[in-house]
Amino acid sequence: MQTDKPATIKEIARKLKISTSTVSRALNNHPSIGLITTERVKQMAKELQYEPNQTAIFFKQRKTFTIGVIVPYLAEPFFADAIGSIEQYANEKDYTVILSQSFDDEMRELKIIQTFKRHRVDGVLISLSKSTTDFTFIDTLRQAKIPVVFFDRVPKRTDVHRVFSDLSTGMREAIEAFVNRGHQNIALINGPDTMIASQERLSSFQDAMKQHNLPLNKNYIVSTDLFADSNEQAMETLINLPDRPSAVIAFNDMVTLDVMRYLRTKGLVLNQDFFFISFANYPGWEYIDNPPMGSIEQYPRKQGLRAAEILFEAIEQKEVLAAQTVVFPSKLALT
């Protein structure tokens, strides 16, 4: 007679006429248990469709074998690539990854972190939302002994684990590429002023322009909240300037995609009326007939992998791991 009641170690032990401790050790490949006994136990477990009691395992090892990952948008190719590396590495460690997206909203991001904490994930990887300014959750996770590693969009503090890309190298190469093609009037469509990533782009842009002795026209620096209508509005501002720029650095490839669509509605031609270089190196550019002039590679796979390596090092370390900062130089990729 079949029953829906799950099989237990006691049931396996009773059928094989051995102790429950022997069954437990055999299921965990303990060296004190002989090969024949181990095989008998595993075969019986298979026949009874035995599944380990995860709650008991978690309680004993004080681990849930899960990590939480928060990114602004799962659909963005950059984050999809980073997550691919993270999941692959976590799988090698026999961990499950719980994915969530903040939709670039600080309050949603905080709720996700609180949920991860309640469910006792063993660690958290975060790429911050564009609006995040409150970092008190870092201390909350520390008190709960849940390590956290930031990647790509990281806080401006050195007491936390951070993995990100140095945007200045790619920016210098982008400005140089424009200059070599005769462009002097170069604009920047930046992200929200509150974002550290926006501040880094602006600083790198200003430095690169000065290195080439190019004038900094404040009208050529516009901001967007990274939503489509705001991206289009930023481009419209540049189009309507009496002495409009011929070349544009965009915050990322998603901004460029929105702007490309907008230019077509205005009868303007990419790589003729305006030339673009943006960040993230969108893999889809190779499938577009008239792609932007270039994109700046930020190495999402490398960032994701290194962030995961640091997180698992922190999880496995008995003592608190000293804060690590890993920086990958960005690089211009011409299309």
Rank of each mutant, 00 (worst) to 15 (best):
K5H: 11
A7L: 00
A7V: 02
T8Y: 11
K10L: 10
E11M: 13
K15S: 13
K17S: 09
S21A: 15
A26R: 01
A26K: 01
N28S: 15
S32Y: 13
S32I: 11
G34K: 08
G34S: 14
I36W: 07
V41L: 06
V41F: 04
V41H: 04
K42S: 12
K42R: 15
Q49D: 11
Y50S: 04
P52I: 11
N53I: 06
K60C: 01
Q61W: 06
K63I: 02
T66E: 14
P72V: 02
P72G: 01
L74D: 06
L74T: 12
E76G: 04
F79K: 00
A80H: 01
D81E: 15
A82G: 09
I83R: 02
Q88L: 12
Q88H: 15
N91V: 10
K93A: 12
Q101I: 00
Q101F: 02
Q101D: 05
D105N: 15
I113N: 00
K117V: 03
R120D: 00
I126Y: 05
S127Q: 03
S129D: 02
S129A: 11
K130F: 08
S131L: 13
T133A: 11
T133W: 08
T133Y: 08
T133E: 13
F135R: 02
T140D: 07
L141D: 01
A144L: 04
V148G: 02
F151W: 00
D152G: 00
V154E: 01
K156L: 08
T158C: 01
D159Y: 02
V160N: 03
V160T: 07
H161L: 03
F164W: 05
S165F: 00
S165I: 00
L167S: 04
G170P: 02
R172K: 13
E173D: 10
I175V: 15
E176T: 15
E176A: 15
R181N: 15
G182L: 00
G182R: 04
H183R: 01
Q184W: 05
N185D: 14
A187E: 07
L188D: 02
N190F: 06
P192F: 09
I196E: 07
A197T: 13
Q199V: 09
L202P: 08
Q206V: 14
D207Q: 13
A208K: 08
N213F: 14
N217S: 09
Y220N: 07
I221V: 11
D225P: 09
T237A: 13
L238E: 05
R244L: 04
S246N: 12
S246V: 05
A247W: 02
A247V: 05
A250C: 14
A250G: 12
N252S: 09
L257G: 07
M260E: 06
M260V: 06
M260D: 03
Y262F: 15
L263Y: 05
T265W: 10
S278N: 08
N281W: 04
Y287H: 11
I288L: 08
D289V: 03
N290C: 08
P291S: 08
S295I: 01
I296D: 06
Y299H: 12
P300G: 08
P300F: 05
P300W: 06
K302V: 07
K302A: 12
K302L: 12
Q303E: 14
G304T: 10
L311W: 09
L311A: 12
F312G: 08
V320E: 13
L321W: 12
L321G: 05
A323Q: 04
V327K: 10
F328E: 05
A333Y: 11
A333C: 13
T335D: 10
